[in-house]
Design a binder for these strands. Structure first.
Length: 602
RNA sequence: GCGCGGUUAGUCUAGUGGUAGGACUGUACCUUGCCAAGGUACAAGCAUGGGUUCAAAUCCCGUACCGCGCACCA
């Protein structure tokens, strides 16, 4: 009993969309080749994504391309080196490495050894005293160490510099952030996208296209001022509707994106905007709207740094709801990590903390008590603490705090305003001042301090931008388009398959079919085909078998239009254009054919 | 990683130890003149390694790959 997945995979393999990689050598789990039609469709699909997320996006957007081989420190900072791990021990006698959980299980441990932490593994090994599978001696093992599950490699021969194939494309964008910020002329927001391959050495690749060891991603990292997670064009998407599954009740809510923000279901406007754009893209690519929803991560599923996270999920007959896009408000987590790890002496790398323009109109004037000449000799060891207390208790400091300005020059903050303080006046104090410092009241005599009046101007704010990340799994979505597009039924009592691919991603846009192989029709068909190719269309030319058979072939690979060349064509210079979905036929002049299709394909 | 099931042409499938069969697809020619018509011919297969046996697609063991469950899972 072939279910939809079987039908899709059978069709994909038979017609050149998708092939198991390296099959003549026995294959390799978790890898697929895109065949001629699949590769073309993938390319069109990615170009459609660029159209939505770069070309027609009002936020300034740019595409970059980074290497897949990534030096270890980058992935230490991102947390991947610490996360993708298994435990490994080494035999003290023969130095052969073994996976610790296997060893423990083989020695009789009941339960899930894979869930044991390193100290538990060590304890089990000490108790069970297993033999080394390599040398058969029970000589003991080294303590368990974490073995990373990323695909490791070397950078340079024998240099010992460790690298990994990246598990996501995002890190290249984050590490380039200082350069990108400059490229965008130091203004937020802006977005950077990357399309490319990533690798995860999955323990157990499963479910066809849904869990691969090498896969393609399309990721956008959109950087925002943390205080301004809005989008100027939100009104254009606010009235569109979608199905939301919030973590509060895990039920379907049919709402507009505007309502989802207003009700607080989606954390902020910018995030909701990217959800809407994601929906727009997926529907344009051909996903079934009834089989698409947005599911909010459960509270324990959400990473601790994520302010909010929604997955776009498509519904598959066999697999149920499948995540294919993750849209996360990642806060400033990634930039913070890279700022910390690439910084010196434990300080944030200033390359990652960015000065942005100030909000106008927050300059003010206020007074602050400042030490006069006798201050230090008078107060002696309490002087430093008293000075700080005077500053903190001043009208100036209180006004600054009220306005959210951080005036503490020594503060290690991710976010602070850059201010200039200009002293406009200084007057002698008229009364003693009492401050609390070092756990006691300290009286500062009037002779020991003066009153300074400061003009304060906010020049800008030093921040770590936060980021909203729409991250697309290419292979999963392509699978969804095949499954959602697949239409099986009967035609004249025979099984009939139609693949209703969106014209925007179909690998063949127009098939040219000479009605017969006589009377110069094939030559005419070829001439017409080349006209269309020259106009930029993806075409196929099929003169084999009956016309019905050829329509069926094209329907099966999702070709939206067939052009039939008949004997009349030679006389009237017109062809029949047949619509895949409706079967409708139009007579179109050859001369205007390219223009006709240009209009149809948009 | 553990467990269960599977692997025969491009695809689907028959085949309980004795020459691997069919359907569909494909290609060529004839035919056909707008929705998988017909004829003729051709091409194409037992995942892999070992074992048992006079003889293995078939029985046994290992491996790879595929699917499912469990485990794992930015």
């Amino acid at each position: 009993m072939a279910d939809k997945t079987d039908q899709v995979m059978e069709l994909a393999k038979r017609r050149g969309f998708l092939w198991p990689s390296f099959e003549v050598y026995g294959g390799a789990a978790g890898f697929y080749d895109y065949g001629p039609l699949g590769a073309t469709m993938k390319k069109r699909f990615e170009d459609l994504w660029r159209h939505v997320f770069v070309k027609t996006e009002h936020t300034p957007m740019a595409e970059i391309f980074c290497p897949r081989v990534t030096p270890e420190p980058v992935l230490v900072a991102s947390g991947h080196v610490g996360e993708f791990t298994d435990l490994l021990v080494t035999c003290l006698a023969c130095k052969a490495p073994t996976r610790a959980d296997h060893l423990v299980t083989a020695a009789g441990y009941k339960g899930n050894a894979g869930a044991l932490k390193a100290p538990d593994i060590d304890a089990q090994l000490a108790a069970l005293k297993p033999k080394c599978p390599s040398c058969a001696k029970a000589a003991g093992f080294t303590p368990a160490v974490k073995q990373n599950l990323m695909n490791a490699t070397e950078i340079g021969p024998g240099s010992g510099r460790v690298g990994y194939l990246r598990p996501e494309t995002a890190q290249g964008i984050f590490t380039d952030f200082p350069l990108l910020f400059r490229h965008f002329r130091e203004r937020l927001p802006f977005g950077v996208v990357q399309l490319g391959g990533s690798n995860r050495n999955e323990i157990s690749p499963r479910q066809g296209m849904l869990r691969l060891r090498e896969f393609s991603m399309m990721e956008a990292e959109v950087f925002y001022d943390p205080g301004k997670k809005t989008h100027p064009r939100f009104s254009e998407v606010a009235s569109r509707t979608a199905t939301f599954v919030p973590n509060a009740d895990e039920k379907d809510h049919h709402l507009t994106f505007g309502q989802a923000v207003a009700s607080g279901m989606v954390a902020n406007e910018a995030l909701a905007y990217w959800l809407a754009r994601t929906q727009e893209f997926l529907l344009a690519a051909g996903m079934d709207p009834k089989r698409l929803h947005f599911r909010q991560h459960l509270k324990d599923e959400m990473a601790h740094y994520a302010a909010d996270c929604w997955d776009a999920e498509f519904h598959s007959d066999r697999y149920g709801w499948v995540e294919c896009v993750g849209i996360a408000d990642r806060g400033s987590y990634d930039l913070t990590q890279h700022a910390k790890h690439s910084g010196k002496d434990g300080k944030l790398n200033p390359e990652f903390t960015r000065v942005i323009a100030a909000t106008p109109g927050i300059a003010f004037t206020a007074t602050v008590p400042v030490p006069a000449k006798p201050f230090f000799p008078t107060l002696k060891q309490d002087a430093r603490a008293a000075e700080a207390a005077m500053w903190e208790g001043s009208a100036y400091a209180q006004e600054a705090a009220r306005r959210g300005l951080d005036t503490a020059k020594w503060a290690e903050r991710n976010e602070r305003y850059l201010i200039t303080e200009k002293e406009v006046r200084r007057e002698p104090a008229t009364a003693p001042l009492t401050v609390q410092a070092n756990g006691k009241d300290i009286i500062v005599p009037a002779s020991a301090y003066e009153i300074a009046t400061l003009d304060v101007t906010v020049q800008g704010k030093r921040i770590l931008p936060c980021v909203i990340e729409p991250s697309f799994g290419v292979d999963r979505i392509l699978y969804a388009l095949w499954e959602h597009g697949l239409e099986t039924g009967e035609k004249n009592g025979e099984a009939y398959t139609r693949l209703k691919l969106s014209p925007k991603v179909a690998p063949i846009q127009v098939a040219i079919l000479p009605l017969t192989n006589k009377d110069g029709l094939p030559a005419k068909a070829e001439e017409i085909e080349w006209t269309l190719r020259a106009a930029g269309f993806l075409t196929d030319n099929d003169d084999s078998g009956s016309i019905g058979r050829r329509y069926a072939r094209q329907d099966e690979v999702g070709t939206p239009f067939c052009v039939t060349v008949d004997n009349d064509t030679l006389k009237d210079q017109a062809v029949t254009v047949r619509n895949r979905d409706t079967g409708a036929q139009d007579r179109i002049a050859v001369r205007g054919l390219a223009e006709h299709f240009r209009a149809v394909f948009g």
